[in-house]
Write a protein that binds this DNA or RNA. Structure first.
Length: 888
DNA sequence: TAAACCAGAATTTTT
DNA sequence: TTCTGGTTTA
């Protein structure tokens, strides 16, 4: 994958001795950038020009040749994926050069996780405790609704979402409520700012921070305590930022603070890949970098090592329609290449079928499933593709979409743990108080809320303790509850809560007991024999959560229970890997170094269990469970946004239709169109050897069938670089592009009907036991070696235009696949045992967390079979079959 | 209070 | 079409 730079060895002068073998792998501008030592540096790195490579080599260079301590280096990214990859590569480079211990010292993090750490260190300065909860946008919306109600606004879901957006933008700008007021243009802005103020107050009172607060909180601290900023700035003497074009003003302000004692800021970016304007990112940061850092050195990386000439030119065709770009011309040494294949389907289902079919055929010819990726504009499009891939027996992984941590069962369990750690958190409190149902309905909640408003009570949790009669000081320094009734109304509210009926009273006592018990257990130290996974297991038992799932939705109970089990595993795993030493010598400065930095002696020293829990919750808030993408063995499905920074041999870009891609919800916003175009550019430049672009003439949206037009971006590509698949419904890119005739009839090309028949018969689904084709059970036929270039297989493919006759027959695939499956079964049948009816023992599997392992034991069968798997590096694990991919 | 039912939104993209 | 949240009913 990264072994094709050898060419340059000969062309380069001899570099420094110590790191010679490394920098030799870089081309001249790359080398120049990696050698850069002090002062600001802007690296304009085109797609596929090796920017991560440059950053990682520069880190190595700093450490090895310039004598910089690893601890002095900070590298910030936007995604966990990028951070992980960078960490890995720095690790590899340093290890290769006998400096394996150094990599751990380098701070490589996402903006958000980095700021979360800083914020925990200095939480008191913002009125938070180090145990503050991080709210995701769901939680955020709930709190906004609560605040809306509180300030007497009418219930309005749309308005709540608008406010969430407005607050998000304030925070992206780096504006506190006060600044939002100052910057208000009109009375609407003013109102939003006022609401923002109320919301922010509620957040702090709840001891919570939302995503935007992580960044804004840190810069607020830096603004008010410049000496803290100084101390951090001095600590991280060399800083690097990846994907700089996606920074928003708040992040930029953060960087300014962090570099205030020096200007060793190295940023890498590509304005053509700026795709997060909607999240407040400003290209101005990259376009005007020299203005802020007049001494900035600028280095352009223009050689693309990834794609063929055809693909690169197609990408350039598209992006050149954007004005105001930084001057940059990408070129590649890989001349020629396969044409871009376009396919127009009649509908979205046929489009998905086509993709599945192509992948299937190419893998039969020796390509690996892992060579392929399917990109779509919106997550909703993944369903059709998934269905067809399943039918075709193509194993796949979906990146993004509904994350593990967004599932209600996961949120419930984590909700309890979050409340245990921070009982002031009202969103999770309300989530768990009656889940599973305890007879605490709207009325009881109202009474509880009323009491919570009384001075001396303050929060739901404390009101609950009052109601449950658990008034004494409890775990973790809970203060005794002494309500200070402020008049007859308050007295009444207290009385009402006291006099609650039997059922809700009982429910409240129960809920209270659970939370208090959790808090006690978290408060107890690991030394007392307590562990986080024990606490979690206790919780699931104590609230009979599994039974609740069965009752709640018997249909999905099975899945959801497994998810809970998986969560418990994850907790256990996390706990095992957790290094308590890490807590002692964190590489963060702050305390002690600067007298303005607070010591957070707090009320009670956090216990190990609570620290682990805190760390786990932080990770679950900041890391998508799907982040751990596996390389190599399965086809990858993701949105175009998710694809940034990645590359694949063969890319299918689906749904290239106007109004879908470009999305254009607001036709008047020309900037939005430009951003969509950059998005298309990003998508195209992910492909190494082969690009397919597909569209559908009609598509179901919200269950309604809509006619579509081909994407304008598709028409931007020079037809010279395109071949239209003979099976395509239309042999022209512009199949019906006539603004004057919106209801035109479309001419169907010959060949279409055959294709359609097959498609209508669901040509690899009907008549086959669907279960057989479920992802996990798909026949494990790994054909080529991982990473084998698809190019070869394409060369070997049957001549185009020769429409595969079997295609129109009823079930060519079933036959093919059944044969394979049969073969596999025969193989398996050679060694089944009583406990392992399917002969799984000995097979290789892959797991999202533990990686590749071998099955050593099996009990039960079907997707629910319990497997014992040995993962090198993790030891033996017990995992439900559903959660692993069986590779063969 | 809980279950069952119905109406309306949702689909741009993510930490 | 699917999900969510709100309302009605037992």
């Amino acid at each position: 994958m990264r072994n094709k730079r050898v060419v340059f060895l000969l062309a380069l002068p001899l570099p420094d001795r110590s790191i010679m073998t490394l920098l030799d792998h870089l081309n001249p501008p790359q080398k120049l950038a990696a050698e850069h030592r002090d002062g600001p540096l802007l690296i304009l790195a085109g797609a596929g020009s090796g920017k991560t490579r440059v950053i990682t080599y520069r880190i190595a260079k700093l450490i090895m040749d310039y004598g910089v301590y690893p601890e002095q280096i900070l590298a910030l990214t936007f995604t966990n994926k990028a951070a992980g990859e960078m960490r890995e590569r720095v690790d590899a480079i340093l290890s290769e050069n006998g400096r394996e211990t150094d990599a751990a010292g380098v701070t490589i993090a996402t903006f958000h996780s980095f700021c979360a750490r800083l914020l925990r260190r200095n939480a008191e300065l913002l009125g938070l405790t180090p145990s503050f909860t991080i709210y995701d946008s769901d939680d955020q919306l709930k709190l906004i609704k609560a605040v809306m109600e509180q300030v007497g606004m009418p219930k309005d879901n749309g308005e709540a979402k608008r406010l969430r957006g407005a607050i998000g933008q304030f925070k992206n700008q780096g504006w506190t409520p006060a600044l939002a007021h100052e910057n208000a243009f009109n009375s609407y802005d003013e109102e939003d700012a006022t609401f923002y103020e109320a919301y922010q107050k509620a957040l702090v009172q709840a001891n919570c921070a939302d995503f935007g607060d992580l960044i804004l909180g840190v810069i607020t601290i830096f603004r008010t305590h410049p000496r803290i900023a100084d101390s951090y700035s001095r600590h991280w003497r060399y800083q690097m930022v990846d994907e700089f074009q996606d920074t928003n003003p708040a992040q930029y302000a953060l960087l300014k603070f962090l570099t205030r004692t020096h200007d060793n800021l190295c940023v890498v970016g590509d304005d053509d890949q700026a795709i997060y304007r909607w999240r407040g990112a400003t290209v101005a940061n990259i376009m005007g970098f020299e203005e802020d850092f007049p001494d900035a050195k600028i280095i352009k990386l223009e050689q693309n090592y990834r794609s063929t000439e055809v693909i690169l030119k197609a990408a350039n065709d598209v992006i050149q329609h954007n004005p105001t770009r930084r001057d940059k011309t990408l070129w590649t040494a890989r001349e020629g290449g396969d044409l871009v294949t376009c396919f127009t389907a009649r509908d979205d289902r046929e489009e998905a079928s086509y993709v599945a079919r192509q992948i299937h055929d190419l893998t039969r010819l020796g390509a690996d499933w892992g060579d392929f990726a399917v990109f779509y504009r919106t997550n909703a499009q993944s369903r059709q593709i998934e269905e067809q891939l399943q039918n075709g027996g193509v194993p796949y992984q979906v990146i993004g979409g509904m994350s593990f941590y967004e599932r209600s069962e996961i949120k419930d369990i984590l909700g309890y743990l979050k409340v245990a750690l921070n009982p002031d958190n009202p969103v999770d409190f309300l989530r768990i108080i009656n889940t599973p149902s305890r007879g605490i309905g709207k009325v009881s909640l109202g009474k509880l809320e009323r009491v919570a408003e009384i001075r001396g009570v303050g929060t739901f949790y404390r009101a609950l303790r009052y109601a449950a009669g658990m008034l004494e000081a409890g775990a973790l320094g809970d203060t005794p509850i002494v309500p200070e009734p402020f008049g007859p109304d308050d007295e009444e509210a207290l009385e009402a809560l006291q006099k609650l009926g039997g059922r809700s009273k009982k429910g409240m006592i129960d809920a209270c007991e659970v939370v208090v018990a959790l808090r006690d257990q978290i408060g107890a130290d690991a030394a007392d024999g307590n562990s986080l996974s024990q606490v979690a297991n206790f919780l699931v038992e104590r609230i009979h959560y599994m039974d609740y799932l069965d009752r709640d939705d018997p249909e999905r109970a099975e899945d959801r229970r497994n998810n809970v089990v998986e969560l418990l595993h994850a907790l256990e795993e996390f706990e095992e890997d957790f290094d308590p030493d890490q807590l002692l010598n964190e590489d963060l400065p702050g305390q002690g170094e600067d007298d303005e930095a607070p010591d957070f002696d707090g009320e009670s020293e956090p216990t190990v269990v609570s620290q682990i829990l805190r760390a786990f919750l932080e990770r679950s808030a900041l890391v998508h469970a799907t982040d751990g993408m596996e390389e190599g063995r399965t086809t990858t499905l993701m949105t175009v946004h998710g694809a940034k920074g990645l590359e694949f041999d063969t890319v299918f870009l689906v749904g290239m239709e106007d109004e879908l891609f470009p999305s254009l919800r607001d036709m008047s916003d020309i900037e939005e169109l430009h951003e969509e175009r950059r998005l298309a550019y990003v998508a195209i430049t992910r492909a190494r050897h082969k690009l397919y672009i597909t569209n559908a003439q009609s598509r179901r949206i919200y269950g309604q069938i809509r006619q579509t037009e081909p994407s304008r971006f598709l028409r931007d590509i020079d037809p010279e670089r395109i071949e239209i698949d003979p099976k395509s419904t239309s042999q022209s890119i512009e199949y019906g592009h006539r603004a004057s005739a919106p209801n035109r009839r479309r001419v169907r090309d010959r060949g279409y009907d055959e294709f359609q028949q097959a498609s209508d018969a669901n040509y690899f689904g009907d008549g086959v036991d669907q279960d057989l084709w479920e992802f996990d059970q798909s026949p494990p036929m790994i054909k080529g070696e991982v990473g084998r270039a698809v190019q070869q297989t394409l060369d070997a493919a049957p001549p185009e235009g020769d429409f595969d006759p079997s295609f129109s027959q009823l079930s060519p695939w079933e036959d093919d696949l059944s044969a394979d499956w049969q073969q596999e079964s025969d193989f398996a049948a050679s060694g089944p045992s009583a406990t392992d009816p399917e002969g799984l023992t000995g097979k290789t599997v892959s797991h999202s967390r533990f990686g590749i392992g071998k099955i050593t034991g099996v009990s039960g069968d079907g997707p629910k079979a319990v497997l014992t798997i040995n993962f090198p590096g993790h030891g033996a694990r017990t995992i439900i079959r559903k959660f692993v991919k069986i590779l063969g």
